[in-house]
């Protein structure tokens, strides 16, 4: 092993400090459009440009359904009034609401993940793969990938669930012992993405097996997927899957400030 050990030591620590601190390096996330006010007509134009119907007009503005956003940037480039762009990566949303049960303290620091590829284009899978790499290193948070559903706690699904992968996905879900959670990653897994429901794919995971957390993006960057894993274990709060048109309430002013 000559050379490898010094090379590794020379490389140093590259791991992100998320979730303890925000990751600010450029290029870690493509960002998402934000819903908000829009001039009359401009909102309709934006909604027309969106190929998947993620942007809809809603009382004097546009709302964005993140489940459908495929990062085509049609709304951001070549338009006179692009929507606000939201940087960041904490996009995962828990969709079970009150019915969601936390996984329990036994799973706080040690979880096994089974990753099932139900027909994705390859980008979501590679982003999931990066989580095991030195930059994101999900092992330090207690997440590990396992090849068998028998020892898995979380099922991560990418892809729109093609007709051929429907039965294997269901078998994998049923082979996991309780308690188990499902995380759907990527626009294809949430809504079918650019493919949508068709003769060859189910248009998302939700109709095939029950989903607990959805991570939007096409593909969601590794930090967003990591956020999704933290949400499903209750270690981070859930985000919203929809950005409404109403402006957020103004920040409360401190007492006595001008």
């Amino acid at each position: 092993m000559r050379g490898w050990v010094p090379a590794g030591l020379r490389t140093g620590v590259r791991t992100t400090r998320y979730p303890d601190a925000e990751e600010t390096a450029p290029g870690v996330s493509p960002g998402l459009p934000r819903g908000g006010r829009a001039a009359d007509g401009a909102g309709g134009a934006l909604a027309d440009r969106c190929p998947t119907g993620a942007i809809v007009t809603e009382d004097h503005g546009i709302a964005v359904d993140y489940r459908r956003c495929v990062h085509c940037f049609r709304c951001a480039r070549g338009v006179p009034a692009p929507p606000d762009w939201q940087p960041g990566y904490e996009w995962a949303a828990s969709v079970r609401g009150d019915a969601a049960q936390p996984l329990g303290p036994a799973f706080a620091r040690s979880l096994r993940i089974l990753v099932v590829d139900a027909g994705d284009c390859g980008a979501c899978l590679r982003e999931v793969k990066q989580l095991s790499g030195p930059y994101y290193n999900m092992h330090r948070l207690g997440f590990f990938v396992t090849p068998t559903p028998r020892s898995a706690d979380i099922l991560v699904v990418v892809g729109p669930v093609t007709a051929h992968m429907r039965s294997p996905l269901v078998q994998a879900y049923e082979a996991m012992p309780a308690p188990k959670r499902v995380v759907a990653v990527g626009a294809c897994a949430l809504s079918g993405g650019v493919f949508g429901p068709s003769f060859a794919s189910a248009g998302g995971v939700a109709g095939v097996i029950p989903v607990d957390v959805m991570v939007p993006g096409n593909p969601p960057p590794p930090l967003a997927i990591l956020h999704g894993l933290l949400v499903v274990t209750g270690r981070r709060p859930s985000a919203a899957l929809r950005s409404p048109a109403a402006a957020p309430p103004p920040a409360p002013r401190a007492e006595g400030a001008p």
Binding site: G8, P26, G27, F73, R77
Partner: peptide
């Protein structure tokens, strides 16, 4: 160790693509 070294380089290039064009996989 080699896989980790290569993974670092790949993430570097992904971030480079993302900061240059706005998307890590050069969509759009």
């Amino acid at each position: 160790v080699a896989a980790s070294q290569a993974s670092i380089l790949e993430e570097d290039l992904l971030r480079l693509s993302g900061s240059l064009t706005g998307h890590r996989y050069l969509f759009g």
